[in-house]
Design a protein around this nucleic acid. Structure first.
Length: 111
DNA sequence: GTCATGACAAAGA
DNA sequence: TTCTTTGCCATGA
C-alpha cells in the first residue's frame, strides 16, 4: 500500500503520544495544519491496522474523550484494555479525567 | 469518471 | 442554546 503523505503525518504524531496520555482527532488534524480534516485522521486510524511500526490508535479518541473507534479494533474491548493497561480509567466507553490525560501536540511539540 | 461514506470538528442559523 | 451544514482526505462502488 502507498501510505499517503497525510496518513504518514498522522501516524507520526500518534506514535509520539506518551504512554498514559491520549489525544484527539481534531488536535492531530490541527497540528498537521488541516483543522477540518479530523475525519480523515479517523480514517487513517482505520487504515493503521497492521501498519509498522505499530500505531497506538487506542490513544486517539474524539474530542469528548469517548472511545468512538473501539469497534474498529480486533475486538471491541481491545481499545479499552490497552488504555487501562496504560493507567487510564475508562468508564462507560469514555475516558475519566480526560482533560488531565489529554495530550495536545500543538502545546507539547510546538511549545 | 462521478457519487457516497467515514474512528470528527468547527462554524453558521 | 441546539440543530444543521460544511470541510477535509482517502477509499470503495
Amino acid at each position: 500500500m502507498v501510505s499517503s503523505h497525510f496518513f504518514e503525518d498522522v501516524y507520526a504524531v500518534v506514535r509520539l503520544i506518551p504512554k498514559g496520555r491520549v489525544s484527539t482527532y481534531g488536535a492531530i488534524a490541527r497540528y498537521l495544519g488541516t483543522a477540518k480534516s479530523a475525519r480523515t485522521v479517523g480514517y487513517a486510524m482505520n487504515a493503521s491496522f497492521g501498519v509498522i511500526p505499530s500505531v497506538p490508535a487506542q490513544r486517539v479518541v474524539n474530542r469528548l474523550g469517548m472511545l468512538s473507534g473501539k469497534h474498529h479494533f480486533q475486538t471491541p474491548t481491545r481499545m479499552q484494555e490497552l488504555l487501562e493497561k496504560e493507567g487510564l480509567i475508562i468508564r462507560d466507553d469514555h475516558i475519566e479525567d480526560f482533560e488531565k490525560v489529554f495530550w495536545d501536540p500543538m502545546k507539547e511539540l510546538e511549545l
